[in-house]
Write a protein that binds this DNA or RNA. Sequence first.
DNA 1: ATCCCGAGGG
DNA 2: CCCTCTGGAT
Length: 211
Amino acid sequence: MTKKRARIIYERLTEMYPDARCTLDFRDPFELLVGGVLAAQCTDERVNKVLPALFERYPDAAAMAGAKPENLLPLIQSCGLFRNKAKALQGSSRVLTEVFDGQVPESMEALLSLPGIGRKIANLIRGDGFGIPGVVVDTHCARVAFRLGLTKRKDPPGIERDLEALLPDDAKIRFGHLMVAHGRKICKAQKPRCQDCSLADLCPKAGVVLD
DNA sequence: ATCCCGAGGG
DNA sequence: CCCTCTGGAT
């Protein structure tokens, strides 16, 4: 019964956002790793603007691991949190070269062993980089799922399990992107636009501002 | 002024 | 669990 609800939500979101996709312009696993790191607290549009020059200079993990901060920082500065991000890029690249032969691994455990890579970016790499079915749970996805009553949890791993239990494999990757698109445009954290939401009739939180 | 597609650390 | 890190968009 709840699966049917999830199915309806998936279909309506697809109508609302017919071309929802990963909004990063790159799909190679290492490029997604870099893009995912840079995307924290920053729009993908800005990340997309920065990535070409970054990859031209540091095309792979070996090059990124050896980058001098004085050269790397200016390239990513406009994305904010740049010291943390430089550390994450170099730390993960170093482990990639030293432990994984320069290749981005597919397993969740291996990805989470990379410094600066957490569950959100790991799932992004697995889904859009390797095509492994899974739901990327970021802050948008978590908020929208909670409001819709698709989960009663607040912790991302729990939300991830709840959502994946509700969806067929071929819907999981796209569902994450749909939730993000919806969270950005309509189901916003502060002022959700429930009047403009075609899910309002089946949303327990419609018209309610609080979480 | 205030918020934002995360992760690590206290 | 709460804090911090940062520039850019609104």
